[in-house]
């Protein structure tokens, strides 16, 4: 057998090139098959979320037939939620808390990053390191002392507590991203502007912000994601339904009711997950570039 194999391979070097090409094509197809498999696994929960959201409570409780398909698709769950005052309340709370968090975080981060990457002062190096370290402090380490502190401030059960606390989750990483982007802007650019008599605010607004726009988009998406999806802080500090954000409103308030309300719960999840999914669909590249900036440079 080995003799025939060598005999078949030896005389034609051309065949070997062909087999390598073939091998490469095989690898490509194997990759596609494996990726398809993983995509299917990964998309089971969101798929089932949408399927369930289109079912009536009767269909869910009947348990007749395949749960993975909808027999009588209906948008009733979505309509009902949209006209539900409590759900509207959660949505509005989430929107305004997120909007304020993003604005506040980005302002703090851009000012600090500009100062740390360009102006500098005694101890600015220590501060940059400190910023990175605080990014590694998870919310679950501090939520109990913060509970006491919010108590003194009278912010328990107020969405203002989130406006105060969410920036602590977003700002360190946003600052870190912005320092990276600002540092990559050539020094000659702002030196030239300084010689021309530009002030620091002018340099920031007219040079740095436009040039580092991809970084700003990445940091903004990060701040948005953190504020929109946060669960621990709102769960710990907001106990009444009218102050709840979407995540807590859905998990805590919707589940209390009817056992077969899963159609509506899943519709609520789909609606709450829609804004991040839409944002990522369009701006994914910026976000990934910001996230992996260190990895690609190395």
């Amino acid at each position: 057998m080995s003799a025939s194999a060598t005999a078949g391979n030896l005389p034609v070097p051309k065949a070997k090139v062909g087999s390598m090409e073939k091998q490469r094509r095989m690898a490509l197809w194997a990759s596609y098959i494996a990726l398809t498999f993983f995509v299917i696994i990964f998309l089971i929960p969101p798929f089932y979320m949408i399927i369930t959201s289109l079912k009536t409570s009767a269909e869910i409780s009947a348990q007749a037939g395949n749960p993975w398909i909808v027999q009588n698709p209906t948008f009733d769950n979505y309509w009902e939620l949209m006209t539900n005052a409590a759900f509207q309340r959660y949505f509005i709370n989430s929107v305004w808390v997120t909007a304020v968090t993003v604005t506040l975080s980005m302002t703090i981060a851009i000012l600090a990053a500009f100062s740390l990457s360009r102006m500098g002062f005694k101890g600015s190096q220590v501060l940059s390191t400190g910023v990175f370290l605080t990014y590694l402090v998870p919310p679950s380490l501090l939520f109990i002392p913060l509970f006491q502190i919010l108590g003194w401030l009278g912010l328990i059960n107020s969405t203002w507590a989130l406006v105060l606390l969410f920036p602590t989750l977003a700002v360190p990483f946003c600052t870190w991203i912005m320092i990276g982007y600002f540092s990559s802007i050539p020094k000659e650019l702002d030196e030239a502007a300084l010689i021309d008599g530009a002030s620091y605010p002018q340099i920031l607004i007219q040079i740095f912000i436009p040039v580092a726009l991809p970084g700003i988009i990445a940091a903004t998406i990060f701040a948005f994601t953190v504020a929109w999806g946060a669960f621990l802080y709102p769960l710990a500090y907001l106990y009444s339904a009218d102050q709840a954000t979407l995540t807590v409103g859905i998990v805590r308030e919707l589940i209390k009711g009817d056992v077969f309300a899963w159609g509506m719960i899943m519709a609520a999840c789909a609606m709450a997950a829609a804004p991040p999914i839409i944002i990522y669909t369009f701006l994914m590249d910026y976000y990934i570039a910001g996230l992996t900036a260190g990895a690609t440079k190395g």
């Binding site: 990726l35 929960p45 999806g229 995540t247 991040p276 999914i277 669909t281 994914m284």
Partner: peptide, 14 residues
């Protein structure tokens, strides 16, 4: 994009 969907949905909801 398809593979990143799990990471984009807020964790509490998924």
């Amino acid at each position: 994009g398809l593979l990143l969907v799990p990471w984009v949905i807020p964790l509490s909801l998924s």
